[in-house]
Design a protein around this nucleic acid. Sequence first.
RNA 1: GGAGAGGUGGCAGAGUGGUCGAAUGCGGCGGCCUCGAAAGCCGUUGUACCGCUUGUCGGUACCGGGGGUUCGAAUCCCUCCCUCUCCGCCA
Length: 419
Amino acid sequence: MKPLCAADSKCVVQTMQNCWMACLILIASAALIENTDSLKAKRNELSAQIAEVSKRKEDATALKDQSRAIGDEIAHGDADLKEIEKDIETRLMLIPNLPHESVPFGKSAEENVVVREWGKKPTFDFKPKDHLTLGKSLGICDFERGTKIAGSGFPVYRAAGAILERSLLNFFLETHRERGTYTEVSVPFVVNRESITGTGQLPKFEEDLYRCDTDDLFLIPTAEVPITNMHRDEILSESELPLCYCGYTPCFRREAGSYGKDTRGFLRLHQFDKVEMVKFAKPDESYAEHEKLTADATHILELLGIHYRVILLCSGDMGFGAAKCYDIEIWSPCEEKWLEVSSCSNFESFQARRAGVRYRRSDNNKPEFVHTLNGSGLATPRLLVALLETFQNDDGTVSIPDVLKKYTGFSLITQNGMK
RNA sequence: GGAGAGGUGGCAGAGUGGUCGAAUGCGGCGGCCUCGAAAGCCGUUGUACCGCUUGUCGGUACCGGGGGUUCGAAUCCCUCCCUCUCCGCCA
């Protein structure tokens, strides 16, 4: 997803305009609502009178005429109101979330803050090969055939590659399960328009989604969408919070506008696999949960022994709906750059408002919006890049990290297969 | 794909034009009883918006979504969506 261009002054001005206009229109509409409501009250009164008069078998024509006239007025008022509401809604939906106070101000990715770094850059006493070269010589991926089947950005994993990829997903899910925090879910890979509006991908990011036109369904860009929408339009009880889910899904992204950027190999794909963590939390606990969620994601990297760092995104680099966001980046020794494998975000009530997810503090209180959070834990393609490059040997083979061996069933990928 | 049935409050389930935000039961909450609990009894119990005299206040809307008929719609008509049953077909 493209972040909101906070550095772009035109964008900021538009947002401000939408905020103010929405406020002004809202204030103005109150008078209109008051007017039509009192007309409706009058009509209800007349209807009751008509019912009574008719029961007595008396003539109610005059009353009916009066009621009909009021009805016309109401119809006009309601039509105006409907248009106004639509206008407000359109404006509100384009307003991004507000950053949390702990988020540094900044215009672009350059002003992000490195929060912590774990491990160190791997060194080699031979010339390391990049993941594409390794992938090809080991026969574990086939981009050409993926392109033939579907198009560029749709990779084929084969042999040890396919097994390794599947093993990673199982390793992620099992690791989360062992920690006992998350309930695993398996959810639909397509969602309806309401769902994708609920998590905030619509209306702003429609061009990044694959759509099934005949049914107006969308291929999910992340499991965040179906999982967060599980509780759409629900009032949760305080005792069940925080609700924590994790689930595997493939993710589909058109990546419109990012052609030519990171197109090599696994760096940017139209389809990839990911395990996502999603939380519904009480507002006063959401930031603590955010830290835990981020730690759950990095825990996996520590088990694997992959060098990573955690970045706190500045205000200008954050996504549309996030109030605070940590990116987890892993080191690619051959690309010689950091690769984002997870974004752990606290959306506060941004998604909860759109999706209508609330909870009741106690039975006397009105329902309040929950806070929603999510983060990858983790996505496979870029992790594969770091994994292949980090654990390669001088003979061109790749060693499997210890923790993965029970999932793969082999400990070495060689040119002839696996051992 | 063919035929039929249905979508009502947290759940179950009445209601076929006005007195229905909606009977009844279950659940939840409060109270009585009790050493305590169960049972029983009594009471209470949705959401959103608008207004002000901010109140156990007044008003409006909501019975799958949208539209229509009517003075008035949960109720009648149209349309869309969804669920269920049977038949067919296929993983």
